[in-house]
Simulated assay, not measured.
Amino acid sequence: MHSRFIGNGEFLLRLDIPLVLSSSSSHSSKSQHLELVLLHIPASMAASKVLVEYAKSSRSSCKICSKNITAGSLRMGFSTKDPRGFDSVRWHHLNCYANSHPLGTVEEIKGFFSLKGSDQESLRKLVAEPTSSQSLDGDNMKEIEESHEMEVKKRKLLGAENKKNLEVKFSLSDVKNKYKDANLPPNWKAFNTIIFNEREEGLHDTEKIAAFDFDGCLANTSVKRIGADAWSLMYASIPEKLQELYNGGYKLVIFTNESNIERWKNKRQQAVDSKIGRLDSFIKLVKVPIQVFIACGLRNGKMESDDPFRKPMTGMWKIFTEHFNSGIALDMDQSFYVGDAAGRTNDHSDADIKFAQAVGLKFYVPEKFFLA
Results as ranks from 00 to 15, higher is better:
G301V: 08
G301I: 08
K302A: 13
M303Q: 13
M303K: 15
M303Y: 09
E304G: 04
E304P: 00
E304A: 11
E304D: 09
E304K: 15
E304H: 07
S305A: 15
D306Y: 06
D306E: 14
D307P: 01
F309P: 00
F309Y: 14
R310H: 08
R310N: 06
K311R: 15
M313P: 00
M313R: 15
M313I: 01
M313Y: 00
M313N: 15
M313S: 13
T314H: 05
T314Y: 00
T314S: 14
G315T: 05
G315D: 02
G315E: 04
M316R: 04
M316A: 03
W317A: 02
K318W: 02
K318H: 10
K318V: 12
I319G: 01
I319T: 09
I319Y: 05
I319Q: 07
I319S: 05
F320S: 02
F320Y: 15
F320W: 11
T321H: 11
T321A: 12
T321C: 07
T321F: 02
H323I: 09
H323M: 10
H323N: 15
F324W: 09
F324A: 04
F324H: 10
N325I: 10
N325V: 10
N325T: 09
S326Y: 01
S326F: 03
S326P: 00
S326E: 14
S326L: 12
G327E: 08
G327D: 11
G327Q: 11
I328Q: 11
A329Q: 14
D331H: 11
D331Y: 12
M332Y: 14
Q334S: 15
Q334E: 14
Q334W: 04
S335D: 06
S335Q: 08
S335H: 04
F336V: 09
F336C: 07
Y337L: 13
V338R: 01
V338N: 01
V338T: 06
V338A: 01
V338M: 05
G339N: 08
G339I: 06
G339K: 02
G339D: 04
D340Q: 12
D340T: 08
D340H: 07
A341L: 06
A341F: 02
A341C: 12
A342L: 06
A342Y: 03
G343R: 03
G343P: 00
G343K: 07
R344G: 03
R344L: 12
R344N: 07
T345Q: 11
N346W: 10
N346S: 11
D347R: 11
D347W: 03
D347T: 06
D347N: 12
D347Q: 06
H348R: 13
H348C: 09
H348W: 13
H348F: 15
A351N: 13
A351H: 07
A351F: 01
D352T: 07
I353E: 00
I353R: 06
K354I: 06
K354V: 06
K354W: 00
F355N: 08
F355K: 09
A356S: 13
A356N: 07
Q357A: 15
Q357E: 13
